[in-house]
Amino acid sequence: MTDRLQALSEAGVSIWLDDLSRELTETGKLASLVVDDHVVGVTSNPTIFASAMKEGERYEGQLDALLASSDQTTVADAIFEVTTTDVRQAAHILRGVWGETLGTDGRVSLEVDPTLAYDTDETIATAKKLWDKVAEPNVFIKIPATREGLPAIAATIADGISVNVTLLFSVDRYREVMDAYAYGLEQAAANGIDLSTIQSVASVFVSRIDSEVDKRLDDIGTSEAVALKGKTAIANSQLAYAAYEEFFSSERWAALEAKGANRQRPLWASTGVKNPEYPDTMYVTELVAPGVVNTMPGSTLAAFKDHGEVRGDTLTGTADEGQKVLTTLAEVGVDYDDVMAVLESEGVEKFESSWADLVRTVQDQLTAARTRRG
Rank of each mutant, 00 (worst) to 15 (best):
residue 30 L to Q: 05
residue 205 F to S: 02
residue 80 F to E: 09
residue 169 F to I: 08
residue 106 G to E: 03
residue 268 W to N: 00
residue 75 V to L: 11
residue 271 T to P: 00
residue 286 E to Q: 13
residue 22 R to E: 01
residue 66 L to G: 05
residue 140 F to N: 02
residue 59 Y to L: 02
residue 104 T to S: 10
residue 352 E to V: 15
residue 144 P to N: 08
residue 69 S to A: 15
residue 97 V to M: 03
residue 319 A to D: 07
residue 180 A to L: 04
residue 58 R to T: 02
residue 242 A to M: 05
residue 45 N to A: 07
residue 116 L to A: 05
residue 292 V to F: 04
residue 82 V to T: 07
residue 104 T to W: 03
residue 26 E to P: 06
residue 129 K to N: 12
residue 274 K to D: 00
residue 327 T to G: 14
residue 230 G to F: 02
residue 127 A to E: 04
residue 346 E to V: 15
residue 178 M to A: 07
residue 245 E to H: 11
residue 278 Y to F: 15
residue 188 A to Y: 12
residue 284 V to A: 02
residue 137 P to D: 06
residue 210 D to K: 01
residue 109 S to W: 06
residue 166 T to S: 14
residue 168 L to N: 07
residue 76 A to P: 08
residue 4 R to H: 03
residue 361 T to S: 10
residue 118 Y to C: 11
residue 345 S to D: 13
residue 344 E to F: 09
residue 2 T to C: 05
residue 53 M to D: 03
residue 137 P to H: 09
residue 257 E to V: 06
residue 94 L to V: 09
residue 34 V to N: 08
residue 328 T to M: 07
residue 357 D to Y: 06
residue 315 L to V: 08
residue 177 V to L: 06
residue 174 Y to A: 09
residue 245 E to K: 15
residue 213 V to E: 00
residue 14 S to F: 00
residue 242 A to Y: 00
residue 348 V to Q: 07
residue 289 A to W: 02
residue 182 A to G: 05
residue 21 S to F: 00
residue 364 D to Q: 14
residue 214 D to M: 05
residue 152 A to L: 13
residue 177 V to G: 06
residue 69 S to Y: 04
residue 159 D to R: 15
residue 370 R to N: 10
residue 184 G to E: 02
residue 128 K to W: 10
residue 115 T to P: 02
residue 285 T to Q: 08
residue 254 A to Y: 01
residue 154 A to Q: 07
residue 299 S to R: 13
residue 88 R to M: 09
residue 260 G to S: 01
residue 220 I to F: 11
residue 76 A to H: 10
residue 209 I to A: 01
residue 159 D to F: 13
residue 145 A to S: 14
residue 337 D to Q: 13
residue 171 V to G: 03
residue 262 N to Q: 12
residue 327 T to N: 14
residue 260 G to E: 01
residue 46 P to C: 11
residue 249 S to V: 14
residue 94 L to K: 00
residue 341 A to T: 11
residue 283 Y to I: 00
residue 372 R to W: 05
residue 319 A to S: 14
residue 314 T to R: 09
residue 20 L to M: 05
residue 324 K to S: 15
residue 353 S to L: 15
residue 86 D to M: 15
residue 252 R to K: 13
residue 287 L to P: 05
residue 72 Q to F: 09
residue 345 S to W: 08
residue 342 V to Y: 05
residue 10 E to T: 08
residue 360 R to P: 08
residue 120 T to P: 10
residue 222 T to D: 06
residue 206 V to N: 01
residue 241 Y to H: 14
residue 94 L to Y: 01
residue 285 T to E: 11
residue 321 E to K: 12
residue 342 V to S: 11
residue 214 D to S: 01
residue 110 L to T: 15
residue 367 T to C: 09
residue 204 V to M: 14
residue 168 L to Q: 10
residue 62 Q to R: 15
residue 64 D to W: 02
residue 257 E to N: 05
residue 28 G to V: 08
residue 347 G to S: 13
residue 249 S to P: 06
residue 250 S to F: 11
residue 277 E to D: 15
residue 284 V to M: 05
residue 287 L to E: 04
